[in-house]
Design a protein around this nucleic acid. Structure first.
Lengths: 359, 359
DNA sequence: TTGAAAGCGCTAACAT
DNA sequence: ATGTTAGCGCTTTCAA
């Protein structure tokens, strides 16, 4: 079954190749009956225009690139789904790459997508301020937009992380939590975590509450029992833990259970992201909902608009912070007045180097 | 900043375009110093070969297509991540499309990806036996592989759904559950659900237990309180619910709580998929773990191998069922001897339109 | 080891 | 409304 080209169809329909081309890309320019004839032949020959040929000639691929750290985090998976659906509706396709929060991978992913001549790019980088790939992306001249990263230098769609985190901190304070620790993964791998930490700290300071402690887990989305136990040991006054994302929060809650601590009775915990699974937990996870699908859709819409814009639309830089929503669950309760000492499982009780909490 | 082509580089390096081409695709054919010169110029000019030009000429895009129902289900998101990582390591890119469990979308997605001249395709369809797109895909002659769908007619990578479901049913039986209901979404939209139902039924029959009931929810991954309440009312003998996927199971558990029923005290529940979030639930969700990442990787590996194979490798059809694992959680306990009558919330007691789970 | 030349499938200018 | 022509950037014979 040999693939037919536009020339074959032209010959069979008794028209020129250009007319066949128009029949597919600008049918309104083609006479009704010519169009019908071409379509009949195309259907019969099972012909559809080859996008690679079209792209080479036109210089546009109608393909968007999307780069995110991981799809195991539903935040990014939902964002991708939103972007892809929006793109598809406009006849665009999406080429995906994941980076595992690794800045080198970001650069490689960008280059590979550029090699494919994508028309525009959506991406989440580890840290927008230090990312090596963003200057490259900007210099490419292609439309691009960050998702989730907030940046002074690049267009983005996100939530207002500082404000959102402040709101959540406020909710904690309202329950009487004076001593709060903020738990993140490696800060270098997430500028969002930095902003959220900042938001909590600023709000607590504004409320005249004690400084917020900070503990860093080795992995972004998993809890380390040792780090957790150490934190609780060194700061027995803590009554609440604010985790920089929901995956981390649920892992922390699971580890607290292993330490014999019950949420929210012994300790309150909240996350950030508002992932759907949080609502399925018992009690439901208190968190801050980000509109992931909408973030993907808006970012995509902005790119498509920019692509529409006839060549030089004054590089309108986008700084879109979509509204967030406090998701009140059941993992934050009134501050406990006393706390049982965590029972550290034998395996972790001693021996290994002790992590320290910083503040 | 005008994009340079291979001709520019050739001129600057004082060689022919063909040599520049070889320098990038078959460097071993180029003399050491020629290669160095070309690379120096390329770097200096910031040149990387245009994949569209390469694809048009060579007829290969080094791009895989991937079609799944949704990325909101972590099963598919993880599979995609596994496939993409594997593909990237081999220099392949992945173009994604979602279908929302809609067969028409499947066909459109396939066509769009074919238009992009993808080299091979991974896909999950609603129902492999009735899918309109699979014959198209096969006739295209492109390498392709189903993921999650088991099929007699097409290559696939999945788990053994019948056996896996049987294993889980067996675990239920072992806890004394004689009266079981299997809960799914629309069966037409998931041949996996059909096989899992069959697996449970066959195993219960083999064990001499009463027939397994079946209830169909309007949506694949959400519970409908009315359907659930009706089921429990009509079959008060039920002590366990087997849900065809984990998203559904967690939604059902949440709805049971709204009905005043506690899991596993009043009713046991299990899911299928083994999604990571299940372990974060309290109690952890009893389920059947599918190796999602491995499914994506194996499917991708098979395709890349087929693409390697010099043109006609006897169309080795793949039927790969990867091992599954019973994930014992806490949502299945001993069969309750008596059950409290579900308290149906006022809003749903009568008349009101079917509620939908929000997302 | 390198070069010359043709052409993959399509569309954009220009012409009619 | 349609046709003619050239060429997008690259690889692939074939030849040297």
């Amino acid at each position: 079954m040999p693939r037919r080209s536009i020339l074959d169809i032209a010959a069979l329909a008794g028209v020129s190749p250009a007319t066949v081309s128009r029949a597919f890309s600008q049918p309104e320019l083609v006479a009704r009956d010519t169009l019908d004839r071409i379509r009949a032949v195309a259907r019969e020959q099972n012909f559809r225009p080859n996008r690679v040929g079209r792209s080479l000639r036109s210089g546009r691929t109608r393909t968007l690139g999307l780069i995110v750290p991981t799809l195991a985090n539903p935040v990014f998976a939902e964002c991708l789904e939103g972007a892809e659906r929006h793109a598809r509706a406009a006849g665009f396709s999406v080429m995906v790459s994941t980076t595992g929060y690794d800045p080198d991978s970001e650069t490689h992913a960008v280059q590979l997508l550029f090699d494919h001549q994508i028309d525009a790019l959506l991406l989440t980088v580890a840290d927008a301020a230090t990312s090596a790939c963003l200057p490259m992306v900007r210099d490419s001249g292609l439309p691009y937009v960050l998702v989730y990263n907030e940046s002074a230098d690049h267009p983005y769609v996100s939530v207002d992380n500082v404000a959102a985190s402040g709101d959540l901190a406020c909710a904690l304070a309202a329950q009487g939590h004076r001593h709060l620790a903020f738990i993140t993964g490696p800060l270098r791998a997430s500028d969002r975590a930095v902003l959220r930490l900042q938001g909590a700290r600023e709000r607590y300071a504004a409320l005249g509450l004690p400084p917020v402690l900070h503990a860093e887990m080795p992995v972004h989305t998993a809890s380390d029992l040792r780090v957790l136990a150490t934190l609780l040991e060194q700061a027995p006054e803590l009554t609440a833990l604010f985790c920089s994302n929901d995956l981390l929060a649920s892992a922390v809650i699971a580890d607290l259970a292993r330490l014999g601590l019950q949420v929210p009775r012994d300790l309150s915990v909240c996350g950030f992201d508002g992932m759907a699974f949080g609502r399925m937990m018992t009690p439901p996870l208190t968190s801050l909902e980000q509109p992931n699908t909408a973030i993907g859709e808006h970012a995509c819409a902005y790119l498509l608009e920019t692509l529409q814009g006839d060549d030089a639309p004054a590089a309108s830089s986008l700084a879109l912070r979509l509204p967030h929503r406090l998701m009140t669950g059941g993992t934050v309760g009134p501050a406990a007045t006393t706390r049982v000492t965590p029972r550290i499982p034998d395996a972790f009780a001693s021996g290994a180097p002790t992590p320290r909490a910083s503040s």
